[in-house]
């Protein structure tokens, strides 16, 4: 289990699920962040709370290189400082108004983020490529039990009975949920990709059934 992810890289999303000008909620350990991509393509993870009125920034909108809160339009730079308060257009926001931002790295089609200062680069996918992400209503332990194999230190898991060339990258979401990034060999064709997707769907159902049984026991 990832008991302490402070300072370690967490795979928060697939690059393809975060197009330019999009914002989405994501979790790093116990923190919820607003993950967003600017017009120029740069991904940023900001604390998911506007310091003005506490609104979730993951409900906001991206314009240019800034993330704006949906409530009053306060906008924040990739570095976290407040750039604009629309109610007072002539005012330069004080330096003290800012949101926390997290380290972000993007490679092999995965967006990684970290609370604290991560040591080194995120793990490489080594010939795998992202297929899709699935949220599973079960903690990592139930997914390991359903897959018949444990997750390694980097969060990778290769299900025992799945088609070869399938690998899962797991991220604990708290509250008994796990974000599963499905990875497949870079050269996999359409039929292998469909088979992999179905295998993960079956695995998800088994893990959720185990979780329900576990909760009922």
């Amino acid at each position: 289990m990832q008991s302490d992810t402070a300072g370690s890289w967490v795979p928060v999303a697939l690059s393809s699920d975060l197009p330019a000008l999009a914002v989405m909620p994501a979790r790093i350990a116990s923190e919820t962040v607003a993950l967003w991509r600017s017009a120029s393509g740069r991904a940023t993870a900001s604390a998911d709370r506007c310091p003005h009125r506490g609104m979730r920034l993951s409900h906001g909108f991206v314009r240019g290189e800034a993330l704006s809160c949906i409530y009053h339009g306060w906008s924040y730079a990739q570095g976290g400082q407040c750039l604009k308060i629309p109610a007072h257009p002539g005012l330069t926001p004080p330096e003290t108004i800012r949101v926390v931002t997290y380290a972000v790295a993007e490679q092999d089609g995965v967006v990684w983020a970290a609370a604290g200062a991560p040591a080194g680069e995120p793990p490489r996918l080594n010939g795998f490529a992202p297929l899709r992400s699935v949220t599973v209503d079960a903690a990592i332990g139930f997914i390991e039990a359903a897959a018949g194999v444990g997750m390694n230190a980097d969060g990778f898991l290769s299900p025992a009975d799945a088609p070869s060339g399938l690998c899962l990258l797991l991220s604990d979401q708290g509250a008994g949920q796990t974000l599963v990034h499905v990875l497949i060999g870079q050269d996999a064709g359409p039929s292998a990709r469909i088979a992999a997707s179905r295998a993960v769907e079956a695995l998800r159902r088994r893990a959720e059934a185990l979780s329900t049984e576990g909760a009922g026991a």
Binding site: P51, G54, M55, R56, A87, I97
Partner: peptide, 17 residues
């Protein structure tokens, strides 16, 4: 979708203008 759910009455949690 505001955090915290309860209204903070003491200064510090939020920034008024």
């Amino acid at each position: 979708n505001q955090i915290p759910t309860l209204l903070p009455l003491d200064p510090g949690m939020e920034i008024p203008t």
